[in-house]
Design a binder for these strands. Structure first.
Lengths: 206, 206
DNA sequence: GGGTCAATCATTAAAAAAGATGATTTTTAG
DNA sequence: CTAAAAATCATCTTTTTTAATGATTGACCC
């Protein structure tokens, strides 16, 4: 490719920004536009200038990376967002991709991987590191599809409400709450509430 | 101080290592000894040479930072270990400090904070960023002291075992399991199992 | 327009957890 | 050594959850 790829970083970790700058500053194909350490200053930068690729941490101090990603990709569809995070958190990754991200790289990525990721998203494809792909596939089977109502009930169970309380809050009968509850236990193959809650928290569902 | 402080980094995130190197390489008081990206190569480095301060990520691919910290501070008591992590995870920080760490810095630390942290631990004191201190104090009240047995029971509850099963596995009677269970509910001010499990997972206790 | 699925409600019964109280035996720490 | 804390067990009651089965209504899709 002849054109330089312009790049902007959103991450509240100073040492990560420094690391990225140090890794990429001498790359002739990369034009370093700058960085922001929070969502607000990221958005105000975008009003003035749009990078080709935006590397975005999923945990920002003022807003979740997921929300920011959604906003950015709605308002500036030409900007490719590449998620950046420490952990291989499947629920977050899935969420991010559903909200307009073009890819996801872990912070233990090498310079080569990073450049490959950038090149891939610029070409319009999605990038995801092998490690992430594998574990996404692994947990995919563990996350059964649950309905909107089931999710509501699940959240209320996790907050400690009893069936009677949930029934009151959702304006449905106790047997109905029970039905949802049982289908949750069945879908997650949990034999009781305790392990149901453990499971869904660890899968990042609530 | 006249002497340079020798420094070694253990972190599996390439961009963090790069960032730290870039931040600290021109500091005249810091001698950069190198880095390791996992616990094993960290330990093999220590056999040859001991830094004054070791910056250690709490999540390593082959071993938890907590275990590594314990080993390092037992075998090489002269090495000051400074924990390094993305999140303000109270349970982990507390654990790390109990296992010989001299301090804890978040990855969003500035160069100044980093230098201050290093200087502080070298002088024999413990360092902790203000942000961490505050949230430690905040959650401290939320984490009641629980006994060894209670923790065992708690873990088995979270795994989905019923009182009868726990009783069988721990060789105690069902009423005893019940007693522990009730004291857990009381200590965490949880009115049922569901919110008990939510709470303890979110506090990082299990 | 027939089939699938989500959401709703019902009845009955068994199992499990939660609440209250009291008491004994080990451990542990000062 | 001894006082406090932890771990143990018991009994009894109430509440809540889990299980099994069946049935109706409405929405959406092909």
């Amino acid at each position: 490719m002849g054109m330089k790829v312009s790049l902007f970083i959103v991450d509240d970790h100073y040492m990560v920004i420094e690391g990225l700058r140090s890794l990429l500053q001498n790359e002739k194909d990369i034009e370093w536009l700058g960085h922001a350490t929070n969502a607000a200053s990221c958005l105000s930068f975008l009003k003035k200038q749009q990078p080709d690729v935006m590397l975005m941490d999923v945990n920002l101090p003022d807003k979740s990376g997921i929300d920011l990603c959604k906003e950015v990709s709605q308002i500036y569809p030409s900007v490719y967002v590449l998620g950046l995070s420490t952990f291989n958190q499947q629920a977050i990754i899935r969420n991010l991709m559903e909200n307009g991200a073009s890819g996801y790289v872990l912070k233990n990525a090498s310079k080569e991987e990073l450049l490959e990721a950038i090149a891939t998203v610029v070409s319009g494809k999605t990038y995801m590191s092998q490690e992430v792909k594998i574990s996404l596939r692994e947990t995919e089977n563990k996350i059964p599809p649950i309905t909107r109502r089931e999710k509501e009930v699940l959240q209320m169970i996790a907050l400690g409400f009893t069936n009677a309380e949930i029934s009151g809050k959702l304006f449905i009968s106790i047997p109905t709450v029970n039905t949802h509850r049982k289908s949750l236990l069945e879908k997650f193959e949990a034999k009781n509430t305790a392990i149901l809650i453990s499971t869904v928290i660890k899968l990042g569902i609530i």
